[in-house]
Amino acid sequence: MSIISLENVSIIFRQRRDRMLLLDHLREVVRKMPQDGFYALHDVGFKVERGESVGIIGANGAGKSTLLSLLAGLVPPDKGAVRVEGRVGALLELCSGFHPDLTGRENLLMNAALLGLDEKTARERSQSIIDFSELAPFIDEPLRTYSSGMYLRLGFSVAIHAEIDILLIDEILTVGDLAFQKKCFDHILGLRKAAKTLVCVSHVPGVLEQLCDRLVWLHHGQLIRDGEFDRVSADYLAFMADPNRHFGDEIPQAPRQVVPVKEKEPHARVVPRRRRR
């Protein structure tokens, strides 16, 4: 059974032009009209097997980060079904879950808690986490004194010491220096041997080359290619070099807009008026 499966998943982002006033909410409730919006992801479906390592590539605004947020369970889909089995660890942003005024050691414990470790395990593993990060001399300094490379070292070290089945990484390994990157890559390859699953995002396939043997290419929220790394990577690079020549008619020019039809969307179910009855 696949560890991750997405079926016809769509996520719609409303274009509310920064308006979220009571009046707008009431209007939405009363008229039940979805506002203007676009598909951040449109009809995306794929499966990931346990122990697989999948790269997600695409230009800016392709929906890569939205896809990771979806897999992490941060945002529910508007249409379609998502199934993720097992514990997810997400490194979506360098400083997420960190506080600059706390020391490295305090942040380490807090992050371990956020990743779901219990106290005993977290304390037992903290030395091994510090060793992996090579931050021992600075571990009792406040995090605001850390460089972005040091943030990455701490965040990544905690994540790989948590008991997770699926690791999601968004474009952040690149801030580590080559030595630490190699260490991370070696560790990730070790994780794959332990049948852990990895989903990585980047806009440059080169970064993912050593980690992934499968690539999913998104463009304007739509899945363009899903397959063997070299083939998808070659197509993607050819497209990025000259968007018009190779793929003129099969690649969307812009994100698909939502046509305001009066259909019942999942989140229209939150209408308070109906609930009150």
Partner: peptide, 11 residues
């Protein structure tokens, strides 16, 4: 999310 709620809240 599966984990230790009491540890998380304490942290």
């Amino acid at each position: 999310w599966k984990g230790d709620y009491s540890f998380l809240i304490r942290q």
